[in-house]
Design a protein around this nucleic acid. Structure first.
Lengths: 234, 234
DNA sequence: TATATCTATAAACGCTTGTTCAGGCAACGG
DNA sequence: CCGTTGCCTGAACAAGCGTTTATAGATATA
C-alpha cells in the first residue's frame, strides 16, 4: 500500500464532508477508501472482496456488516460522486447569472476542478457506473443525462440570444453534439494528466474554459458576451 | 442474436479486408464476430468463453483450436483496430499536404468516420484495451500515444507557422491538452449517437472538423489558412 | 451484573471461471 | 488403401468468485 505515482497524495478517499460517508462507521469508511483506491487502479470488476477487506485487515465476511453486497459498495462510491457533481453544477450555474457565456464557463470550471482535484474518484465514477444493475444504473444514467441536457439548454439559450454560434448550425441535434464534445473533453481530460507534466489547477481551468468558449463561437466574429470572469472555486 | 437497436445493421464484425481476419479459418472468423458483438454489449470481462463459443454453436474447448487464450481473442480484436486507425491516419495526413489546417481536418475526419461507421469495433477497441497485459498492453498504448503525438506535432507546427492560435498559450504542454481534448471528443462522441437522432455521416464529419478548427483558432481573428476543403453541408 | 447490540472470525457454501485433455469423427494426401 | 492432420466434443480440472452461517468476543445500556 505504498504511495502511488501520479496521484495527488492528499486526495480524499471519499469526500468526508458528505453525508454518504460522514454518517458511516469507521470500518465502513475504511472499506470505502480501500475499495476506492483498488477500483481506481484495477477497476471494480477486477477487484475482489478479499482484496478490499484484506487492505483493511479484515476477513471477507466483515464487509457484509456494512454493505449488503459488493455492488452496493460500488454504488455508494459512484452515485455519491454523481450527486455531488450534479449539485455543484446546479449551484455554479445559478451563481453565474443569466448570461449563457458565464453559465458555460461556470459549468466547465466545475467539471475541470472536480475531475482534476478528485482524479481517483472521477475515474471510478466514470468507469464503474456501467456495471451497476437495474435501478442503480438507471439512477446514475439519469444524473449523467441531466448534466448533459443542462449544458444543451445553455447552448441553445446562448444561440437564441445571439451570444453563441454553434458548430453544425442551429437546432437541438447539433447542440447535443457540441455539448457532448465539451463534456467529453472535460470528463476524459484528467486521464491524460500524468503525461502532461506540471500544470496548475488554475491554468487547466482557464484552458478548458477557453476551449469550450471557442467551440461555441464562430471564428472571425468577436463574441458578444462579456469576458469570462473567474467563478469562485466551486 | 436478433438485430440490435441503434446499431448499423451492416457493420463488419471484423473488417474482412484485413489480414487479421482474411487469413483466418471460418470458425475463427465466426468466433471473432461473436466475441465482438458480445464485447460491445457486455464488455469483454463480463463475457464468458462459453457465451462466445455457444453463440457459434460450439463447446468451450473449441475456442482453443483457434486462439491460445481468451485474452488472445481480445487482443486480436483490439490491436487490429488500432493498427488500422494508425495506418489510415498516416495516409490521410500524408494526403492532406503540408498545411497544418488541412492536416488537422484530415485527422479529425478519419477519427470521426472510423468511430461512427464502426461504432461497435470502436467501442470494443477503446474500452477493452486496458485489460490486456504486458507486451500486448504496451503495444496498444504505444499506438494510442503515437496517434496523440502526431496530433500534437500538427498543432505545434500550425502554431509555429501562425496558422493556429492554441488555447492555453504557446508551448508543448498546452498543445498536449488541446490535442487530448480534440481526440477525446472524437473518440467518445460515437457513444452519444443513439441519443442524438438522425445525422448523416457527412454532417457529423463536418461538425467535428468545425469544432476542432475552432479549438485551435482564436475568436476574433480570422484564421490564416485556406478554408477547410470538402466541408460538405454543415 | 445481566442483556442486547455490534462487529468480527473461521469455515464453508454453491457456483462460475478459463483452460486442459483424451477420444472420435471427417477430410485429405500419397 | 492407410495414415496424418485438423477440428470438435464431453468431461473434467483447479482456482477463484461473492456470499452465508454459526459462533464468539467486545461494548453499551439498564
Amino acid at each position: 500500500m505504498a504511495t502511488r505515482t501520479g496521484e495527488p497524495p492528499g486526495e480524499d478517499p471519499v469526500s468526508p464532508t458528505c453525508d454518504a460517508t460522514s454518517t458511516r462507521s469507521d470500518p465502513a469508511r475504511r472499506l470505502l477508501a480501500a475499495a476506492d483506491e483498488l477500483f481506481f487502479r484495477q477497476g471494480a470488476r477486477a477487484t475482489t472482496v478479499r482484496e478490499i477487506t484484506g487492505a483493511c485487515g479484515l476477513t471477507p465476511g466483515a464487509l457484509y456488516n456494512h454493505f449488503s453486497s459488493k455492488e452496493d459498495l460500488v454504488y455508494e462510491l459512484v452515485v455519491h460522486r454523481h450527486r455531488r457533481l450534479d449539485e455543484e453544477v446546479t449551484a455554479a450555474i445559478e451563481l453565474a447569472g443569466p448570461d449563457p457565456g458565464d453559465r458555460l464557463s461556470a459549468m466547465v470550471s466545475v467539471f475541470v476542478l472536480t475531475h482534476v482535484r478528485g482524479r481517483r474518484g472521477a475515474r471510478v465514477a466514470n468507469r464503474e457506473y456501467r456495471d451497476l444493475t437495474a435501478a442503480r444504473l438507471d439512477e446514475v444514467v439519469a444524473i449523467r443525462r441531466r448534466l448533459r441536457d443542462r449544458l444543451v439548454e445553455i447552448l441553445l439559450d446562448g444561440e437564441a440570444k445571439g451570444v453563441f454560434s454553434l458548430p453544425g448550425g442551429k437546432g437541438r441535434p447539433a447542440a447535443v453534439i457540441a455539448a457532448a464534445a465539451i463534456l467529453d473533453m472535460c470528463v476524459h481530460g484528467s486521464e491524460w494528466l500524468t503525461e502532461v507534466g506540471t500544470f496548475s489547477l488554475e491554468e487547466l481551468e482557464a484552458q478548458y474554459v477557453t476551449m469550450a468558449r471557442r467551440l461555441v463561437s464562430a471564428p472571425g466574429v468577436r463574441p458578444a458576451g462579456r469576458r469570462l470572469r473567474r467563478s469562485g472555486r466551486a
